[in-house]
Nucleic acid binder design. Structure first.
Lengths: 179, 179
DNA sequence: CCTATCATGTAATCCGTTACATGATTAT
DNA sequence: ATAATCATGTAACGGATTACATGATAGG
């Protein structure tokens, strides 16, 4: 019975529910927003839809209020717990998906002028520096409440924004030409 | 008329066709594999389906062979060219989507033992170092044929693999505990 | 000659996104 | 009071992924 075909999103939901249970989709959304959602976007509709699928698969239980907002409160089932545990311990060699519009533009930039490429680079540099600042602010807010593992996860975000900002600065300083 | 609702995938196809035209989906696939596909995965079925949509939108023309394999050869139309040009020049502040299973696991690792977290970190470190090596090999292969912009795009890939490998090494050296 | 891999395409399902909608709180 | 924002949910469409399937070419 029923650990068939869970997606990555499924495991994210399971992880969120284990962290927050009992919890509503909105609470999941709030946690996502200040953490993993900074790098892996999950539209809120997913955070409402996926838990329902997981209820049907026996991974979560749902208690819907009968009055007022009729909010849905989710909790782990033993099946959900063990599915999550199994996933957490599975080795993965899956590469990072690094989806960046700026990189795509640069890749296809052969027809642009030097100035246009520089503009792209400067805009991207600024974006990364802004995000770095956002991350700093977020970390300050959550530092006291988050677990060590969760805080540690943020570090790679800092590193990425830093590295990417430097990369774009170097492109702006010396735009590729020719092609 | 008719630059409605192109997706990022659409622009990737347009960029590929501009680079390779006239070309088949398989040729696009080959280029993707050694370049942007290293960080943004495009299943080959997309590289067959999306060009057909673009033909319908007037962005590409298609010449299908009548004999043998009946391969489809794609070319840019003026509309496709201008849509791509416009996109390349549009500013974006869209953040990078950095989708990494390892990060998700770390984020939800509060229930794991120190050793299990270390195993995760070591596996991820190895993955990133392996990918770094792959990138080196790929760059050597393509160095003479690629444009400066396209080569430059690869650099951020190197940086990422390096940065991520170092991050995971530090996690392995000092795994987060408690929670 | 046969097998493996390259090359080309289609089908079906489902997930993810966008948009719509509205009920509750808080602020002014 | 009223507007704004927070909170909660659903609908619908389309694209992305997975799987199926088979035609060519090259290597042994």
């Amino acid at each position: 019975m029923a650990d068939q075909s869970l997606t990555t999103t499924s495991y994210v939901i399971l992880g969120l529910v284990r962290t927050l249970q009992p919890c509503t989709s909105y609470e999941m959304k709030s946690l996502v927003k200040i953490s993993i959602g900074m790098f892996w976007s999950f539209p809120h509709s997913q955070l409402y839809a996926e838990p329902m699928r997981l209820v049907e698969k026996g991974m979560l239980t749902e208690n819907q209020e009968t009055t007022g907002r009729k909010r849905r409160l989710f909790r782990m089932t033993p099946e959900g717990d063990s599915a999550l545990d199994k996933w957490l311990r599975q080795p993965t060699s899956a590469p990072t998906e690094l989806r960046d519009i700026g990189q795509l533009r640069l890749f296809f930039s052969d027809g642009l002028t030097t100035d246009e490429v520089r503009d792209l680079a400067l805009a991207r540099e600024k974006m990364h520096r802004d995000r770095y600042d956002e991350l700093v602010a977020t970390r300050e807010k959550v530092a006291s409440a988050a677990t060590p593992a969760k805080l540690r996860t943020m570090e790679i975000g800092f590193k990425w924004e830093e590295t990417a900002a430097e990369f774009w600065a170097s492109v702006a300083a010396d735009p590729p030409v020719g092609g």
